[in-house]
C-alpha cells in the first residue's frame, strides 16, 4: 500500500492486447489531489496503463480500484461522474460545433428527461471560460488550430466535472507555447479545484515543472516513482531511457532539467 491517500489505483494488473502482454503485474497508487505525470520511452505501456485505469481495457489479472471498489463492478455511468479521461487522439465528428462537443461532457449527468439543466449550462460555460474558448463556441471543430482543438477536448473533459482526470499526452502536436498553455491550465485545475490529475507526457523538463509525482516506466514496469527531484537523475534517465545526460536545476523553477549528452 501507498503512504498517501489514493482513490484510484491499479493492483497487480496484467494488461494484454491479444497474446502480447504489455504490462505484467504492475501496481500504481495515484496520489489524491496531486498532478501525477507518467513518463517513459515509446511503447513502454503508459497509455495502456492509463486506459486500464479508466476501465477502457480490462486487466487480464489484477484489478483497478476506484474509491475502494473494483472499477469493473461500478456502473459505467457512475464511474463517468467521478473519473474523466481524454484519449491521445480523440475523434471529432465532422461538422460538430465547439459548444456541442463540450456539452457532450455532460452526458453522465444527463438522462432522457434531464438533458439541459442549469448545472449543465453552468458547467459548459465554466469549461469554455477556463479553457478560454468561449468566443469559439459557435465555430466548427475543423476550423480550429491544433492548439484550440486540444483546448476544446480539455473543455469537454472539464464539463464532465470529475474529481479525477486522466489525460493521455494532451500536449502532443502542440508547439511549445501551446504546450505551456495546456499545462498551466492543468495546474490551475489542480490547484484551484483540487482535482486529481494524471498525465502522460513526453517532455521530461515540462514533466518536472508541473508534476507533484512522477512515475517512470520502461517495458511495462515502473522503474522509479516519487517527486521530480527523486526520480529525475542522470542515473535513472540512463535506466529508463538509455539516455546519457546531466541533470541540472531549471534556472526558473528550480526543478530538475535534463540536458542530454552531446554524443548521446
Amino acid at each position: 500500500m501507498a503512504q498517501y491517500n489514493s482513490r484510484l489505483s491499479a493492483e497487480q494488473v496484467t494488461l494484454n492486447y491479444g497474446k502480447r502482454v504489455i504490462i505484467d503485474e504492475l501496481s500504481l497508487y495515484i496520489p489524491d489531489g496531486k498532478i501525477t505525470v507518467i513518463i517513459g520511452p515509446n511503447a513502454c505501456g503508459k497509455s495502456t496503463l492509463l486506459r486500464s485505469m479508466a476501465r477502457l481495457l480490462k486487466p487480464k489479472f489484477g484489478r483497478v480500484m476506484l474509491d475502494g471498489e473494483e472499477i469493473a463492478d461500478i456502473p459505467t455511468k457512475i464511474v463517468a461522474k467521478r473519473l474523466g479521461m481524454l484519449p491521445q487522439t480523440p475523434i471529432a465528428p465532422q461538422g460538430v460545433l465547439v459548444s456541442d462537443l463540450v456539452s457532450r461532457g455532460r452526458a453522465p449527468h444527463q438522462s432522457i428527461f434531464q438533458q439541459w439543466s442549469k448545472a449543465d449550462e453552468a458547467a459548459v460555460s465554466e469549461a469554455l471560460v477556463a479553457t478560454e474558448i468561449s468566443d469559439l463556441a459557435d465555430r466548427r471543430i475543423e476550423e480550429l488550430s491544433g492548439g484550440q482543438r486540444q483546448r476544446v477536448w480539455i473543455a469537454m473533459a472539464l464539463a464532465q466535472q470529475t474529481e479525477l482526470l486522466l489525460l493521455d499526452e494532451p500536449t502532443t502536436y502542440l508547439d511549445l507555447p501551446h504546450q505551456i498553455e495546456v499545462l498551466n491550465l492543468v495546474r490551475k485545475l489542480n490547484r484551484e479545484q483540487a482535482r486529481t490529475i494524471v498525465l502522460v507526457l513526453h517532455d521530461l523538463n515540462l514533466a518536472c515543472r508541473y508534476a507533484d509525482h512522477i512515475v517512470a516506466m520502461r517495458e511495462g514496469k515502473i522503474i522509479e516513482q516519487g517527486t521530480p527531484d527523486e526520480v529525475i537523475t542522470a542515473q535513472s534517465m540512463l535506466k529508463v531511457f538509455e539516455l546519457n545526460c546531466i541533470v541540472i536545476a531549471d534556472p526558473l523553477s528550480n526543478t530538475p532539467l535534463v540536458v542530454p549528452a552531446v554524443d548521446g
Partner: peptide, 17 residues
C-alpha cells in the same frame, strides 16, 4: 443520446458513461 457518444469513438464514449 447514445449515438452522439458513439460518434466520439469507443474510448470517449465509455469514458462518458
Amino acid at each position: 443520446r447514445r449515438l452522439s457518444l458513439i460518434e466520439l469513438g469507443d474510448d470517449l464514449a465509455v469514458t462518458l458513461g
